[in-house]
Design a protein around this nucleic acid. Structure first.
Lengths: 336, 336
DNA sequence: TTGTATGCGTTATCAA
DNA sequence: TTGATAACGCATACAA
């Protein structure tokens, strides 16, 4: 009735548990005849190794943990998928948890993954309480940060320069003649990507000799509906912005959706830009001008670096990836 | 250097490991003075229980596993989020894995979660190899199916009637005067939801006295781009369909996006319907007619039932939830 | 090549 | 209320 154990298999095959264990982990150290007999028993009993016992005995779990802010939208999906695929190729399983953009929950999830024996951890962004880093150091668990590059931060990272990327978008918007800008940003508290993107916008505005404090910034959670609500609010202001720069494609798509309902045409009446270049950006009407982030490359690079950290026990250099401005129809000079 | 253990805490607090364990698990069975001393030691050492050891000793993990076909889009996100929240309230942690709609990967993930000590499992849909059910039975692990209701299936389920729901959408489309229908469906092989939705469409077509074989059906993976491609293909046919019924909102949104690029207006030139009522359905322009699925209710109900299965060790009745047709602007009589 | 024996960190049983 | 100790299932050092 209970699940079969190594011992059951050993008895059935007429060998010791050590031999069964070897058959499963280092098959070439067992002669073929024995191995076949053991495998036969394994199959007929439907034996599955008990992971907890294996972790305890081997002190390795071949499991990596990742904690992302949300699973609710596509922001992290593509990169995480690539991360997972690359880990799988290296023989690791990925466990994913989400923090709901909440520091307390993130800490709880970190503990949960560590106590589950994760060999390494992937976190998003650098901004968190120092005690978290102390905990990670004490547990001696390799941890990598993604989605945000910062060579000076406490943990190594694989990411891109959010600030420079948003600076480039904004500069382009200004270059096309827009002077009344507005921004829809993610919640900046505890989110270094959102913070950096706001800073990037201000950089560009200042560089153009404009007043950064004259640019209204709506902070909302990443979401289609919240993006739509923020956009509606901005459109009700006087003077009305001619370009709305969004910190994320999800918000931008929400903005585009509500624009149609408000009787505003994009880009004639108002230009909209996004960030991330999610699948939805190319399919939206009009197609969304945005920042292309090499999510898949980032995910694969993160896997490579994290495995290296775990297996070689050394701290690697951070990796910076380039982003790229994708000019599409949602951005045009003011008035069309 | 290594992570602190129960023993370290016990030594530091000057008690036995048993007492420390009790402080953590059944605090009221320890006098306050002792408990405070122990907790003090726990905190100062930054102790985190070793999950593997705990699972081995207690034969319970307070962990549930869920395997969903994909994390790549929002289809399962909302329901899973609610599932997770409800489990959390009951003291369980959720581990999520994705199968990429591939039976082999699903089996692998099931084994991974079982061997990790999951107390219970949530799977999507009923269609899979019988050997999987044998394995689950032998491991004696409570398993629940969601997203698909079928009281006659081998496993209990919490879901809805995909076939009846799609029958209702199609009947409405026909009632509005459409005669040249087409469908964009998910891949039916191994997917009982997609299969049932196609069957529902045929039901309605037959009931209207029309020829079901005259309705072109494009099977594609759920995705914005694939939905767009399928739609483009359908629009190139003669005679051109006046209504395209999609098995999913994601495909429908892809179809709507490409429609604009093809110079087709929705719903004047072609009506489009979806399924799921994701956030994107209301924000799309025009808003998408679709089937509202009570994802959050389903997730919460699934959590309740699964916890019950694990804790009471009995097989519960399946739960059927009602879906609801949401008529919006993307569907109108042919010609506008 | 195979078997024996020990330890991994925790919970639970039984005594004290 | 607390402590000693036996599992739990597996990997591995060491012996044969």
């Amino acid at each position: 009735m209970a699940a079969p154990t190594l011992d059951d298999v050993a008895k059935k095959a007429g060998v010791s548990t050590a031999t069964v264990s070897r058959c499963l982990n280092t098959p070439d150290r067992v002669v073929k005849a024995t191995r076949e007999r053991v495998m036969e028993a394994v199959k007929s009993l439907g034996y599955t190794p008990n992971f907890a016992a294996r972790v305890m005995a081997a002190k390795r779990s071949f499991t990596m943990g990742a904690i992302i802010p949300t699973m609710d939208n596509a922001i992290f999906a593509r990169g995480l998928q690539a991360f997972q695929e690359a880990l799988h190729e290296s023989g690791y399983t990925l466990l994913v948890a989400s923090s709901a953009y909440t520091p307390e929950i993130e800490e709880e999830q970190i503990r949960a993954l560590v106590s589950r024996g994760a060999d390494g951890l992937l976190l998003i962004g650098h901004e968190r309480d120092p005690s978290v880093y102390d905990f990670l150091a004490r547990q001696n668990i390799p941890t990598l940060v993604a989605w945000s590059f910062d060579a000076t931060a406490r943990l190594p990272s694989v990411g891109f320069d959010n600030r420079a990327a948003m600076r480039a978008v904004t500069a382009e918007v200004i270059a096309q003649g827009h002077r009344r800008l507005a921004m829809i940003s993610g919640i900046c508290a505890g989110n270094d990507r959102a913070t950096a993107r706001v800073a990037g916008l201000r950089d560009a505005v200042v560089a153009a000799g404009m007043d950064p404090d004259a640019v209204p910034i709506m902070e909302t959670h990443y979401g289609i509906e919240t993006g739509a609500a923020a956009f509606e609010d901005l459109m009700a202001r006087t003077p009305r912005p001619t370009a709305v720069i969004c910190g994320n494609d999800v918000q931008a798509v929400g903005a585009m959706g509500i624009a149609a309902k408000l009787g505003l045409e994009v880009p004639c009446d108002v230009s909209i830009t996004g960030f991330d270049d999610l699948e939805i950006a190319t399919i939206a009407s009009p197609a969304l001008t945005t920042v292309h982030v090499p999510h898949r490359d980032m995910g694969r690079a993160a896997a490579r670096v994290l495995v290296e950290m775990v297996e070689d026990k050394r701290i690697p250099a951070s990796v910076e990836l380039a982003t790229e401005l994708r000019l599409r129809a949602s951005l045009a000079p003011p008035g069309g």
